[in-house]
Design a protein around this nucleic acid. Structure first.
Length: 606
RNA sequence: GGGGACGUAGCUCAGGGGUAGAGCGCCGCCUUGUCAGGGUGGAAGGCGACGGUUCGAGUCCGUUCGUCCCCGCCA
């Protein structure tokens, strides 16, 4: 018999009355009535009320000393609570334990914040005392839920013949993409391992190796600045299949995600099967490759009306190869000058030179530029946007990328402003047929949209030479409520085609050999056609748990400045360690921002 | 790298030129049916740090450190 507990604090019910039990856990709350003491005992599974009777003098005297977060073990009899004293808010609320023994396993100093309350606490304090923060309901539930989702994933893939295979954490640096985290190689002075941004090449090599169906709950590391949904290390479901097709990958993930949502959450799926939009369609209708499909406000192209209008800004945009597009928004009432300025700023922040808008009146359009449009043109605009009296129409005239980005941001702004999206609905959709490459303005060169192992659509292969930017890839994203949850592709499996793609992005044979030699070589040994996907686990959990930040679904995240304030990482290392690694520092530790612990604000230490 | 918000008691916050306040928590005492227990008394901070303006600075100005959010960056 376990010396601490026979049952958990979440499982005892009325039918257990009369049983002798032991429970162990923390003092959640104490209610000392002088002549009677109630202790709420908390463990991972729940809360059970324990009573201490003054007739047992010694026991009672110990119970009087109990304080929140003391670790205790109690023994006693399960008793139905007196009539009328049940607590319907507690699963164990029909019973209580009449304590006969109490062991204090460990006292607790007063915690820096209250464990039993859900109020907001400063994030730095939460992270510094993460082991206490994790005791609180929110985090305990999130981390528990995380386990359930990952378990479901493992079972699902195991059922379908997938093998979970680990790949190295110490690997080679790949200069493009995100900045690598580097690890000095002691045995090779001046050389470094890199921590993986993803197991991409390894999983493809596992296909060459014949494992056919691979997955891994893999850590992916990127040394880039943080965001609400980005951490230095995050977790992906990395997955790859041989002899597969895009549809097969999509179906596999679609069923998995449908199960997760329907079996593990109370959320509603907006549509089953998930809508599949091409990249071109998503941009056209929503101005984004990760559209939020929970609401309308779809974008309409009015370039043809603009081309013949009197309004020079509109005409000019179309004549110089851009377009004019707009959305119609109801329910805004009458916007003040200040409000229209704010809305305009959203568009200009996205690169637009301005924002054209009209208020739709009963008989005509109103607004600063209405005078440039004939009655006929006004009717055409109304018809194009299906606008009704009381609506506002907003138009952006510019190069297409600017038009799309501006209207995308406006769409999301009105979603939030007008509460158009139901929080309990998950609009999952696939976006497919992405271009294989995109043009990098800053660097003046072609780059892969996803990565350079993506297979072009068969009919576009010949365009790799003539018009690479027009080549569509066998590339797909899973999107939920405007958030990208997964990204994948069918891969190139032939060395000649891979070499061709390398050359399009400016990697010659010698460089390809040096950096991707293993893979190119592997492809010469009958590499099977293969493809896969890599869903982000953290982002999925954020969406499913309605958490505003990725830190809320990770047990031990880093701060925005990529620090671990609990473990004090990163930190300096000894001169001896550096010497062993053949590393000389260019700057002494402590000379950089944020690197001086002594400069940090002090906080309570009770 | 850039922009914004914030930093006052252990926690959450109010105060905005005249010497610091609330709720919760904490400590003591009282209370036998509470479950955000109740009552009562008490301790606790000099307002992130540094420098300036002022007779006087949480309060105004500057710098700096830190946290969070956004852009850039990043799938």
């Amino acid at each position: 018999m376990n010396p601490y507990r026979t049952n958990t604090a979440g499982e005892l019910r009325a039918e257990n009355a009369g049983e002798s039990v032991r429970l162990a856990g923390w003092v959640h709350r104490r209610r000392d009535h002088g002549g009677l003491i109630f202790i709420d005992l908390r463990d991972r599974w729940g809360i059970t009320q324990v009573t201490f009777d003054p007739e047992r003098a010694e026991l009672f005297a110990t119970a009087e000393k109990l304080r929140p977060e003391w670790s205790i073990s109690i023994e006693g009899e399960v008793a139905r609570r007196p009539e009328g004293n049940e607590n319907p808010d507690l699963p164990t609320g029909e019973i209580e334990i009449e304590a006969t023994k109490l062991r204090v396993l460990n006292e607790s100093v007063t915690p820096p914040f209250e464990i039993d309350r859900e109020r907001e606490v400063d994030e730095l304090l939460r992270l510094k005392y993460r082991y206490l923060d994790l005791r609180r309901t929110r985090m305990r539930e999130n981390i528990t839920f995380r386990h359930q989702v990952v378990k479901h994933i493992r079972d699902y893939l195991d059922d379908r013949g997938f093998l979970e295979i680990e790949t190295p954490l110490l690997t080679a640096s790949t200069p493009e993409g995100a900045r690598d985290y580097l690890v000095p190689a002691r045995l090779y002075p001046g050389q470094f391992y890199a921590l993986p941004q993803s197991p991409q090449q390894f999983k493809q090599l596992l296909m060459v190796a014949g494992f056919e169906r691979y997955f891994q709950i893999a850590r992916a590391l990127r040394d880039e600045d943080q965001r609400g949904d980005r951490q230095p290390e995050h977790t992906q479901l990395d997955l790859e299949m041989s002899y597969t097709t895009q549809d097969e990958v999509l179906d596999l993930i679609e069923v998995l995600y449908t199960e997760i949502v329907e079996e593990l959450t109370n959320k509603k799926l907006a549509a089953k099967p998930f809508p599949r939009l091409t990249y071109a369609e998503a941009m056209d209708r929503f101005g984004s490759d990760k559209p939020d499909l929970r609401f309308g406000l779809e974008i309409q192209d009015i370039s043809e009306i603009a081309r013949s209008s009197e309004f020079k800004v509109f005409r000019g945009a179309v004549e110089s190869g851009g377009s004019v597009r707009g959305i119609s928004v109801g329910g805004l009432g009458d916007l003040s000058r200040r409000e229209t300025d704010e809305i305009t700023k959203i568009a200009t922040d996205a690169g637009a030179k301005g924002l054209a808008f009209f208020k739709v009146e009963e008989d005509a359009l109103a607004g600063p530029i209405a005078k440039f449009f004939s009655g006929e043109d006004q009717d055409s605009l109304l018809a194009a946007l299906a606008a009704a009296p009381g609506d506002y129409m907003f138009f952006v005239a510019d190069r297409n990328p600017v038009v799309f980005e501006s209207l995308n941001r406006l769409r999301l702004h009105f979603r939030d402003r007008l509460g158009l999206a139901d929080e309990n609905t998950l609009a999952l959709c696939w976006v497919t047929d992405f271009p294989l490459f995109e043009w990098n303005e800053d660097e003046g060169r072609i780059e892969p949209m996803h990565h350079m192992f993506t297979m072009p659509q068969e009919e576009d292969v010949e365009k790799l030479d003539s018009d690479p930017l027009a080549v569509i890839g066998q590339l797909y994203d899973l999107v939920a409520n405007g958030t990208e949850l997964a990204s994948g592709s069918i891969r190139i499996h032939r060395p000649d085609l891979q070499q061709k793609v390398f050359s399009v992005v400016g990697i010659d044979e010698e460089e390809a050999e040096r950096r991707f030699g293993a893979m190119l070589n592997a492809f010469r040994y009958g590499a099977p056609p293969h493809g896969g996907i890599a869903p982000g686990i953290d982002r999925l959990l954020m969406v499913l748990r309605d958490e505003p930040n990725i830190r809320e679904v990770m047990a031990f995240p880093k701060t925005q400045a990529a620090r671990d304030e609990m473990m004090n990482a990163p930190g300096p290392v000894s001169e001896a360690q550096l010497k062993e690694l053949n590393i000389a520092l260019r700057r002494a530790p402590g000379s950089e921002r944020g690197s001086n612990p002594a400069a940090r604000p002090s906080e309570g230490n009770n």
